[in-house]
Amino acid sequence: MVSKFTLKAAFISLMLLLVFLGAWQLATQPRESTAVIGGDAEYAALMGKGEQKTGFPTPAMVGKSFVTYLSDPFYDKGPNDKGIGIQIAYSLGRVALGFLLATLIALPVGFVIGMSPLLYRAFDPFIQVLKPISPLAWMPLALYSLKDSDISGIFVIFICSIWPMLLNTAFGVASVRRDWINVARTLEVNPLRKAFLVILPAAAPTILTGMRISMGIAWLVIVAAEMLVGGTGIGYFVWNEWNNLALPNVIFAVVMIGVVGMFLDLFFGWLQKLVTYRE
């Protein structure tokens, strides 16, 4: 049953959206086109008079590009013009690959340094230095050394999404309640069993928080990376439309990026709930 509270919140959300759209419409009201400087009819025609082109697009124009792209999301008109569905699929594919690689490394390494305070200390300076590096700063290095733009894109996702996972795993593992570990010790549980049956479930919520943050970062990074390397993906789509200064399409893509990012986050939120337990 939907509670009254949820309904109220939804109502306010809707109002906010309407106010936003209204303000947007008012701000971008098409003005009478500026007088052509000493223009005759021929000049005016060459300048494209009578066509809406300059200025920020109105909500209606953006709505139109939503309809155009969403009504045919999987078209393929050659290597440089594909439907939005295909582009998002490419981006998600890259994110999935980079994220998977990061997970494969971050979880075991995080586990090990979480269990050993000595290693934690030893690794810490490297992690602290590497963590804040912007994905775009990695790009030229990756392109130069990996010699492949697609792999470079995946590498950049990998290198940027590994840190939150690594740190959260280490932190989660390190802060498992001592009582439980002591109980395991009294029962003489072997180390492997201890790791999988005691520490992992206890640290799982923290680890998933790390993964959730990482996924958010991966999705942020992919758009930037694809704008740089081009070819396919939602980032490339933004770049291609920007190339044509087609702002309605850029806004459409921006909203799509937001929506996909939200779903990714919701998915990890759901996973997190699955592994959280109440004491």
Binding site: P79, N80, L228
Partner: peptide, 13 residues
């Protein structure tokens, strides 16, 4: 296959 590219530095690379 014709690939549209984002800039000259990238073409070079």
């Amino acid at each position: 296959s014709m690939v549209k590219t984002a800039g000259w530095a990238l073409i070079r690379d």
